[in-house]
Write a protein that binds this DNA or RNA. Structure first.
Length: 121
DNA sequence: ATCGTGACGAACG
DNA sequence: CCGTTCGCCACGA
């Protein structure tokens, strides 16, 4: 039984929540890949789910979660490939200094960001 | 509990 | 380099 006023019910953070939390840490001018996020979250092969999570990013969170800094393993913008959304994402990244080649790929070796501590887990 | 979905990704040919 | 195939996953209906 709870002592008296239980601080807060253990709200199991969903995978999506963890995705948002991680992406929120990606600094301006750098990027991460879907697969990378999945890996950091302990689910090596859940890259697809990461993309799904961002697809359903709450409108209200678009300000805090830099979703545009997440691209695919090829260093290109996924976003279902095309669409005005993809162009917008690219613009936002270029605005931060990310450079894309003629083929629409960016150099991950140069712009990819890795979280400070990879020691946990 | 089962099924369809999709901002992924590695493997092929 | 490019399109296709197939595996993998969390989530909602």
């Amino acid at each position: 039984m709870q002592p008296r006023n239980a601080p807060d019910p253990p709200p199991t953070p969903t995978f999506y929540d963890r995705v948002y939390a991680f992406v929120r840490e990606v600094p301006r001018g750098s990027v991460v890949t879907y697969g990378q996020v999945a890996l950091e979250l302990g689910a090596p092969s859940a890259a697809r789910a990461v993309g799904y999570a961002l697809h359903f990013l709450p409108k209200a969170a678009e300000q805090d979660v830099p979703w545009w800094r997440v691209i695919n393993a090829s260093g290109a913008i996924s976003f279902k490939g095309r669409g005005p959304e993809a162009d917008r994402q690219r613009s936002m990244l270029e605005q931060e200094g990310i450079v894309f080649d003629a083929a629409g790929h960016t150099d991950l070796r140069r712009f990819r960001w890795w979280p400070p501590a990879t020691l946990d887990r």
